[in-house]
Computed example of a mutant assay.
Amino acid sequence: MNLSCIIIDDEPNAVNLLEMLVQQSTQWQLKAKCYNALEALTFLKTNKVDFIFLDINMPQLTGMELAGLLPSQTKIVFTTAYSEYAAESYAYQTIDYLLKPITLKRFLAAQQKIEAYFGKTEAVAHKTDTADEGYFFVKSGKVLRRILLDEILYFEGEKEYVRLVTGQEQLLIYRRLKDIEEQLSAPFVRVHNSYIVNTKQLVKIQDNHIYIADKHIPVSEKFKDGFMAIINKRIF
């Protein structure tokens, strides 16, 4: 994942180690190395980054004091030799808390956590955009087909493909059902390992089955509680 970051630490050896880990283990862009808080503040006034590696024990301004001066949305990975600040660190937008000396194993765990955080944020933003616009495009051969969300009856997973079914047609999409699920929000809900349904299109629910048009779709135990929580809000 392409992310940008800076390192803020007054210890050159710690900076060099973290720089090496970033360069050798990630695709991140290291935009700057700052050796004190004031230098970092100056850089951040005119440059944007996705997150910062921030040491806590520094002269002039500590990492905690600097964190309090940064915009509230600034994402932070704290780096320190002291564990006692861990609880306090989560008063900020903290993604992780790395104890020095930072090992490769611990850094790789932090990398997964950081990329999972930003991946989830992007997915939520994409999902919101799709839901607000009310449509998306589906590639069918060499053609991009515009599909209205309200017209979709359900999605059915078929190994590496997903079958999109409307009242008029069926389209095969070369994607996993999980990927489709991550781009959708209400009124779509997962009801089975193989099915996502449009609750606006439900005709009836009976014996753990959903009836949509002429299709009977099973509701599995894994997804039943979440599905019924949505349905129960609309029972008179």
Rank of each mutant, 00 (worst) to 15 (best):
D207W: 01
D179L: 04
V165E: 01
I8M: 03
A123M: 14
Q206G: 08
K100Q: 10
M20K: 15
R106K: 14
N57H: 08
V22S: 05
L184S: 03
L38E: 14
D207H: 09
A109H: 00
T199D: 10
A91G: 12
A110G: 06
S194E: 03
A125M: 06
I8N: 09
I152A: 14
P218E: 14
I76H: 08
N16M: 04
S4P: 02
R146K: 15
N13G: 00
Q112H: 13
V49R: 05
N13V: 05
L108P: 04
E158L: 01
N232D: 09
Q93M: 11
E158R: 03
Q93S: 15
L153S: 15
S140M: 04
K33F: 09
Q27K: 10
K31R: 11
A116N: 15
C5E: 08
L3A: 02
E151N: 14
T128M: 02
A87Y: 10
A37Q: 14
A81S: 09
R146M: 11
I8W: 10
L148T: 08
L104R: 07
F236Q: 02
R176N: 03
L172M: 13
L153D: 15
A91K: 15
I76M: 13
C34H: 08
A123D: 13
L148V: 02
E151L: 08
I212W: 06
K204F: 10
Y82E: 14
R234C: 01
L18D: 11
V191S: 06
F53E: 12
K215I: 00
H192R: 07
M1C: 11
L54E: 10
F107C: 06
F137G: 02
E160N: 10
A123S: 13
A81P: 02
A213Q: 10
F43I: 11
T128E: 01
Q206W: 03
T199N: 03
L54N: 09
E11D: 12
Y174K: 03
D214I: 13
S140K: 04
N198M: 10
R190P: 00
Y92C: 01
L30R: 00
M20S: 07
T128A: 07
K233E: 12
V15E: 00
L104K: 13
P187A: 06
E11T: 09
K31V: 01
F51Y: 15
K178T: 06
F236L: 09
I173L: 13
C5A: 14
K100Y: 10
M228F: 14
I210G: 14
P71E: 03
I152R: 09
F188V: 15
E115Y: 06
T199Q: 14
R163V: 15
K139D: 08
P71A: 03
H126Q: 11
Q23R: 01
L66H: 07
L108Q: 07
T46I: 06
S194K: 06
N16I: 03
M228N: 12
D225S: 14
Q183M: 15
K233F: 05
P12D: 04
F223C: 06
I173A: 03
K45H: 09
L177C: 00
K31N: 13
V165F: 00
T130L: 15
K48C: 07
Q170S: 14
T79C: 13
T26E: 04
E115L: 11
S72E: 15
L30E: 11
R175G: 00
L177N: 01
